[in-house]
C-alpha cells in the first residue's frame, strides 16, 4: 500500500518552486546585505562602508526621531550621535542576534531617550500639530496602510494602530489608551495579540 502510493502520486514534480523571491524574501535579502556591510565595517574600519550605511540608515533614523516629536535641528543632532555610535560600537554588532536595522534602531532609540530626558522641557512643550482628532486618526490609518506592509498589514487595524502609536510615536500604553478612548487592558491585549502574530511571521528574522 505504502509503495503504491509513493509511485502513484508524483509529489516531487508538483512541488517544484519558482526561483522568484517573494517581497518578504527580497526585504530579508536587503536586510542581510546591510548586516553583512555592518559586520565588514567592524572588521575593516573602512569609512566607505560607513558612508554606505549612513546613506541608507541616517535618513531613516532621522525620520524615526522626528516621529518621536523632536524638532528638526534636534533630530539631526541625535541622528548624528546615533550614527557615530554605529561607527564606534560596530564591533559589538552580532548578526546572529539582530539585523543591522534592529541594532541601529536600538541605538537610535537609546540616544533619543537620553536626549528626551536631558531636554525634558523642550520635549514636553512641543505644540500639538493636529488638533482635529478625526483627521489625526485618518492620517494614522493611511500611514499604516502605506508603510507597514506585509506582516504588519496582516494585523487587524486595532492591533496595527497600537503598534504604530507605540513604536513610531513613542506613546506610552496609558497615553494610547487615553487617545483611543479604550481601557489600558485593551491596549495591552492588542499588543500581545500583535506580538504573537509578528513573532510567528518574523521568526526567521530574529
Amino acid at each position: 500500500m505504502q509503495e503504491f502510493d509513493a509511485e502513484g502520486g508524483d509529489v516531487n514534480a508538483a512541488a517544484v518552486t519558482p526561483q522568484t523571491l517573494t517581497p518578504e524574501q527580497r526585504r530579508k535579502q536587503v536586510r542581510d546585505e546591510w548586516s553583512a556591510c555592518l559586520t565588514r565595517l567592524a572588521e575593516t574600519r573602512d569609512k566607505s562602508e560607513f558612508a554606505r550605511l549612513f546613506g541608507y540608515f541616517a535618513p531613516r533614523v532621522k525620520s524615526y526621531i522626528l516621529r518621536l516629536g523632536m524638532p528638526d535641528a534636534t533630530a539631526e543632532e541625535v541622528m548624528q550621535e546615533a550614527m557615530l555610535l554605529v561607527w564606534r560600537k560596530a564591533h559589538l554588532f552580532n548578526r546572529t542576534k539582530a539585523s543591522a536595522s534592529t541594532w541601529i534602531f536600538t541605538l537610535a532609540r537609546n540616544q533619543s531617550i537620553d536626549r528626551m530626558r536631558r531636554d525634558k522641557v523642550q520635549f514636553y512643550e512641543l505644540p500639538e500639530e493636529e488638533p482635529d482628532p478625526e483627521q489625526r486618526d485618518m492620517g494614522e490609518h493611511s500611514i499604516i496602510a502605506e508603510r507597514m506592509q506585509e506582516a504588519i498589514a496582516t494585523l487587524p487595524e486595532g492591533q496595527a494602530q497600537v503598534l504604530h502609536l507605540s513604536y513610531y510615536e513613542g506613546k506610552s500604553h496609558s497615553e494610547i489608551a487615553e487617545q483611543l478612548g479604550i481601557p489600558l487592558g485593551s491596549v495591552k491585549s492588542r499588543l500581545r495579540l500583535a506580538f504573537s502574530k509578528l513573532k510567528a511571521h518574523w521568526g526567521e528574522e530574529v
Binding site: 535618513p59 539585523s99 513573532k199 518574523w202 528574522e205
Partner: peptide
C-alpha cells in the same frame, strides 16, 4: 530580541527624512 526586531522592521519601512 523579537520585540526589538519590530522596531528594526519599522525602521526599514520608514520614509527617509
Amino acid at each position: 530580541e523579537v520585540t526589538n526586531s519590530v522596531g528594526g522592521a519599522l525602521l526599514d519601512r520608514l520614509e527617509p527624512a
